[in-house]
Design a protein around this nucleic acid. Structure first.
Lengths: 148, 148
DNA sequence: TTGCGTGCAAAGGTTTTGCATGGCA
DNA sequence: TGCCATGCAAAACCTTTGCACGCAA
């Protein structure tokens, strides 16, 4: 890797500045574009796609593809938290569509188990558990979709 | 649910017949379409999309969205295995792109933990762990992408 | 006969690519 | 100056929708 020609452009700086203000929140390309429009700045969506891809490579940003046709979901995490923070997975509720953080030490044992027993190195930043959240389970009165 | 007007059509039967011959394997809509073309039968892709959606609802088929722009990945599992088989998650190698089965009793404790501690009911049929498989780790000599 | 399923064509939406221009080093 | 980044327009791609026709019940 080692900086294979990554210029430090105005757009990169402004994007990173903004992302640091919404750390841990979920967003898509359109959200970013709208934000800069609303403050009178324009950054082309192509550039946003390319810069986010670059940040995904650098490990600053996580990218989640939740369903076909809908835009990819991103999340920024600062380098500090990377080192000090514990493992964080995500939960995606298939009923209400929310993407939920799940930070839990016990879950690091999952990664360890899968590494030792299945020879696979899990990347928690990209992994999403699909299912149904508590509120949607409680809302559900007819039992539809919950037990198949 | 309960059969909300689901006719038993020729296309449905032929699709299910074929799926039972590739149980446990991964495929996309294009694969199915190509298969029927190659045996002289035509099933419109629209129909394949709709029938697969139906089977996902019925729990016969799992659907995985692996990355934006690329087609969704499906897998058929017969109803018998559903009942007797243990929990099966999937691993997706981000280097070689393979989708790997991971059947393991210990993993059911993951679901239990997330249910009890996080109030979230995980659906293993839709959940994919992203990471790097053993072969790709061994192939990797430069260390790129493996430790960020 | 009623109503759903089918399949073609077209639309919808996200993401990628081509290319001329502009900015960083 | 050289090379990469930018951003507009257009393409590429998967998936969904509209609609007339056909088939299952």
């Amino acid at each position: 890797m080692n900086n294979r020609g990554n210029y430090k452009t105005k757009q990169y700086d402004e994007l990173l500045d903004y992302l640091s203000t919404i750390e841990g929140k979920h967003f898509n390309v359109c959200d970013i574009h709208d934000h800069f429009q609303s403050v009178g700045k324009n950054i082309g969506t192509t550039t946003i796609y390319r810069q986010l891809d670059r940040m995904v490579d650098e490990g600053l940003v996580s990218k989640y593809v939740l369903e076909p046709g809908s835009p990819a979901c991103f999340e920024y995490m600062s380098p500090d938290k990377h080192i000090h923070g514990g493992i964080c997975f995500h939960l995606r509720c298939e009923v209400c569509g929310r993407l939920i953080h799940m930070q839990c030490d016990e879950l690091s044992s999952i990664s360890t188990h899968i590494m030792k027993e299945h020879g696979f190195r899990v990347d928690p930043m990209r992994t999403v558990f699909y299912g149904i959240c508590q509120e949607c389970m409680e809302d559900d009165v007819e039992g539809k979709k919950l037990c198949h």
